[in-house]
Computed example of a mutant assay.
Amino acid sequence: MSTTKTMDRLLFGDNQFFGVNHMSEEKARAQAMRFQDLSAIISVLDDAYDEGITTFMCTTHSRIAEIADHVRANPDRYKDFTFYPGMPYAHKYADAVTEYGMVGAVRKFLPEEGMVNAMMRGGMSIAKKDIEGIITLLIDAEMAMFRGLSTPVIWLQNVVVDLLLGLGFTDAFTIFARHVKERYNAEPGFITMNLPMLLDTLETAGIENPIVCSNINKIGFRMSGGIDAYLEALETRRFRAVAMSVFASGAIAPREAIQWISEQPNIESIVFGASSRGNIRSTKALVDEFFAARVPELAR
């Protein structure tokens, strides 16, 4: 069974590699063009790693498999490199079905190890309308690319988390959490655009002290439910908070953003993206500066 481990203060995200920018479509396109070549992505990851940021919080985009292959092929270079995979990456499935057909897409994503078992489990699940079997099959398919690599936290992406919240399908969170712990000896994490609502649901599901990633920033940018509800949750709820969009896609100056986030209770980690070593270094320096004063509090 998994044991709770402290997450790194700073996690490196992958939005910039795949043309995701919430404020500028032009910048997003430019980034997508720049990172078409794998070597450009590896160069930035190397910069982050060499600056001491060793955890890569990523989607299961098909190109992440290439990064995983690179890390596996260079174990001495990346001995401390850690992946925090987030699933599912919906476009990947849609593209695969278009290219390979339904059966071909399933075969493409299933882990080679235990493929017959997985296929049988999937077939029986569909026949019996066994939702748990289908969910665990999809998790295993997503995790195949990370075989042999360190994945101590596995995320359920907000596109699914928030859909499940809307549907009231609480059992799915329990199924995900249990499978991640039992099969991968990892901690389940949940990404959401509605932190207060998710915390209520996870409590109902019996998931204690969950790892939850959500937008948390000074101006309430993309914080569904309102900033006051988030601040109250940070003050009063028991969970492990990972803050994303702390710079509000550039609307808040870095120093101001990091200082504010460091003053909030219960922030265990920050995930950020950057395309240059200078920005990576400056962000790490700000985090080191402002969170240093919180060490006694966090230790408690």
Rank of each mutant, 00 (worst) to 15 (best):
E112A: 15
A96T: 04
I219W: 11
F176I: 02
R77Y: 09
E232H: 14
D95V: 07
G133L: 02
Y49L: 01
A205M: 02
E263A: 12
S269I: 02
G13K: 07
Q31W: 13
T192F: 04
M7Q: 12
T82R: 13
Y230H: 14
S224R: 15
M23Q: 11
Q157F: 13
N194L: 04
I216Y: 01
I267A: 03
F247Q: 08
A205L: 03
I207K: 03
T6H: 12
T192V: 04
Q16E: 11
M119F: 15
T170P: 00
R63Q: 09
N185F: 13
I252G: 03
V106G: 10
I219T: 09
F291D: 07
F109Q: 06
A172N: 00
F35D: 01
G166H: 14
T236Q: 15
K5I: 15
Y184L: 02
T82Q: 09
S245D: 14
G250V: 05
M244V: 09
G123I: 02
H61T: 03
I227W: 00
D288L: 05
S282G: 01
E203F: 05
F173P: 00
D171W: 14
F81G: 03
I64Q: 03
L231R: 15
E297G: 02
G189D: 03
I191A: 11
N15H: 15
V97E: 08
L156Y: 07
K92N: 06
R9S: 09
H70F: 12
F247Y: 14
Q31V: 00
P296H: 10
V153N: 06
G189Y: 04
I64M: 08
I280T: 08
G226F: 06
S262W: 01
L202T: 05
A30W: 08
M119Y: 13
M223Y: 04
S24Y: 10
R281L: 10
N194F: 05
D228A: 15
I41A: 01
V180S: 06
R240Q: 13
L167Y: 12
D288E: 11
E289P: 00
T174C: 10
K284Y: 09
I252K: 05
R147G: 10
K27C: 08
N21P: 01
E268F: 09
N21C: 07
Q157M: 14
D95F: 11
A177T: 03
P75T: 09
L298M: 12
E66C: 02
L164Y: 10
G189I: 02
V20D: 07
F56Q: 03
M193S: 15
I267T: 01
K108I: 03
G189H: 05
I134H: 08
A28F: 04
D228K: 15
V116A: 14
Y93D: 05
V153R: 09
L45N: 03
Y230A: 05
